[in-house]
């Protein structure tokens, strides 16, 4: 409370009432102010400012270094990615080549097999044709034989004299006709 402090310093106070304008206290205030300012200045320039400045510089350096390292790592990651993409593309090309090679090999094998099969088929077909012709020929021969024998038997049965040569000639003529 304001009234508490009133008694003690009453003697020093002016009638005017503004302690700020009591010039008798000015030397005291100015002296101690200068002491305080010099102390603050010494504290700052000798200890605080170099310390804070160093800390700030160190932090800036650390941040700059870390940023540079991060940039470098980013660059490395990019390079790795590029290498990966390159490897992927190479692998794709390689596999495409292998596929093409395999396809060509298979095609060649297939061609050979096809050709072999074709040859075999045509050989078999020829064989079959030959046998069919054989069978046909033998059948024709049999027919001639049967016709001659039948004609002979018929002639003999009808009481004629069998002349083998003329029967054969007659059957042949008939068969041709």
């Amino acid at each position: 409370m304001a009234t508490d402090a009133h008694g003690a310093a009453q003697g020093a106070q002016q009638a005017g009432g503004m302690p700020q304008l009591d010039f008798s206290t000015w030397p005291n205030q100015i002296f101690w102010l200068l002491v305080a300012l010099v102390l603050i200045h010494q504290l700052l320039t000798r200890v605080a400012l170099p310390r804070i400045g160093a800390v700030l510089a160190e932090r800036k350096g650390t941040i700059t270094n870390n940023l540079a390292a991060a940039e470098e790592l980013k660059q490395k990651a990019k390079e790795a990615e590029a290498a990966y993409i390159q490897a992927l593309a190479d692998a794709r090309a390689e596999s495409a080549k292998i596929v093409a090679q395999a396809k060509a090999d298979i095609q060649a094998d297939l061609d050979i097999a096809t050709a072999t099969a074709d040859a075999e088929i045509s050989a078999r077909a020829a064989e079959s044709e030959r046998r069919i012709a054989e069978i046909r020929a033998s059948a024709l021969e049999s027919v001639t034989e049967v016709a001659k024998d039948t004609a002979k038997e018929l002639v003999a049965a009808l009481g004629g004299k069998v002349d083998a040569r003329s029967v054969t000639a007659a059957v042949n003529a008939r068969l041709k006709g």
């Binding site: 304001a2 009234t3 402090a5 009133h6 003690a8 310093a9 020093a12 106070q13 009432g17 503004m18 302690p19 700020q20 009591d22 206290t25 005291n28 205030q29």
Partner: peptide, 12 residues
Amino acid sequence: LQIHPMDQFIVK
């Protein structure tokens, strides 16, 4: 009521 608002500034 006594109010002395300037007493706080007295140098002692």
